[in-house]
């Protein structure tokens, strides 16, 4: 399969008054054309920071991208996103890669009509006239399932319901038919039925417009339902990447195993305690010098305290960053 995106050893740090926060310490992953990549991990594991680093969306200072490469394979050959200047990255943002943010209420400008916020992108990237862009915005709102789109385009974000706002946010992200959609927890703030509608919508758009999707979430249930492959992040590193079935049925990294173990189980009697992972994630102010999961791991050996484990192949397409991964043959 063709790759659309290939990120290697991405290092992002935040230079704060308290010291240097090692937000990403060498993140590598790739995205194939037409696939959905689920990115899971707890808060602070670097899911959003990774994606925002690619598009230079982090506030600098304090954020600084200090290493790595992010190749985007467009029509004109590979392009290193991290090396682009402001004008270059502006063409990618919205034009080639669309971002769907979590909380559409705060992510949309409160004093600009939804239609204008969508047409703004169209004018910027496709050079449409304002009038044409407006008509196209109305079509887009219709396309993402907003009733009376002509009327709704002239409304302000606060006049929309939560689900409708997220639909508008999606219309905005897909307006210029980007190749990649990055959805940063787009359903977290929504109730379950609306969540299902939004997921269906994104998947429908993805296949109709032939896009690749990166779906950031901490809901493993959502990932199981939509992703082709899953990438698990922990403390600024990718600890495991696998096709979705492998990840759920044959997890290799102790963190993934514990994460899956913490899911509520169907069929278990009503009154039981949910399992949790003991301990807390490491303090990112310290520069990692060994496995970042070692404090919370039941299987850590001496080596885990000395070296940083690199991602290695467990089976085709399945990688884990662990010295002692679980495999079909037991612990190696």
């Amino acid at each position: 399969m063709d790759k659309i995106l290939e990120v290697t050893d991405l290092i992002t740090r935040f230079h704060t008054f308290d010291g240097v926060v090692h937000a990403l310490s060498g993140v590598s992953f790739h995205l194939y054309r037409g696939e959905t990549l689920g990115v899971v991990g707890e808060s602070g594991s670097g899911k959003s920071v990774t994606m925002m680093s690619l598009l230079h969306l982090l506030a600098a200072p304090p954020a600084r991208i200090e290493g790595g490469r992010a190749l985007y394979f467009g029509d004109n050959g590979p392009l290193d996103l991290l090396g682009l200047d402001t004008a270059g990255i502006s063409r990618i943002r919205g034009g080639r890669m669309g971002f769907i943010f979590q909380d559409a209420l705060s992510a949309l400008n409160p004093v600009m009509t939804v239609g204008r916020q969508i047409s703004e992108t169209l004018v910027e990237h496709l050079g449409m006239t304002t009038a044409r862009a407006w008509n196209r915005s109305v079509q887009l709102l219709d396309y993402v399932g907003i009733p009376e789109p002509g009327k709704r385009a002239a409304a302000y974000p606060h006049q929309f319901s939560g689900g409708m706002r997220q639909r508008a946010m999606i219309a905005l992200a897909i307006a210029c038919q980007p190749r990649v959609i990055i959805a940063d927890e787009p359903t977290t703030a929504l109730d379950v039925t609306v969540q299902a509608q939004i997921i269906d919508l994104v998947l429908r758009l993805k296949s109709e417009m032939n896009m690749s999707v990166i779906w950031i979430t901490h809901d493993l249930g959502v990932v199981a339902g939509i992703a082709d492959r899953v990438m698990v992040m922990y403390a600024g590193t990718v600890v495991e990447t696998a096709p979705v079935d492998d990840l759920f049925y044959r997890p290799a990294h102790p963190y993934t195993i514990k994460l899956l173990g913490a899911l509520p189980k169907i069929g278990q009697a009503g009154n039981y305690r949910l399992e949790s992972i003991d301990g807390t994630p490491p303090d990112l102010l310290e520069k990692p010098s060994h496995c970042q999961f070692v404090w919370r791991c039941d299987h850590a050996g001496d080596r885990c305290w000395q070296d940083i484990p690199q991602n290695r192949e467990i089976s085709p397409g399945h990688q884990a960053a662990c010295f002692f991964p679980f495999t079909d043959k037991g612990v190696r």
């Binding site: 598009l55 969306l57 502006s90 063409r91 990618i92 943002r93 919205g94 034009g95 669309g98 971002f99 943010f101 705060s106 992510a107 949309l108 400008n109 409160p110 703004e120 992108t121 910027e124 990237h125 905005l172």
Partner: peptide, 10 residues
Amino acid sequence: YVRTAYSKGI
């Protein structure tokens, strides 16, 4: 929403 505006390539 300012970040969103930047993410649109404005």
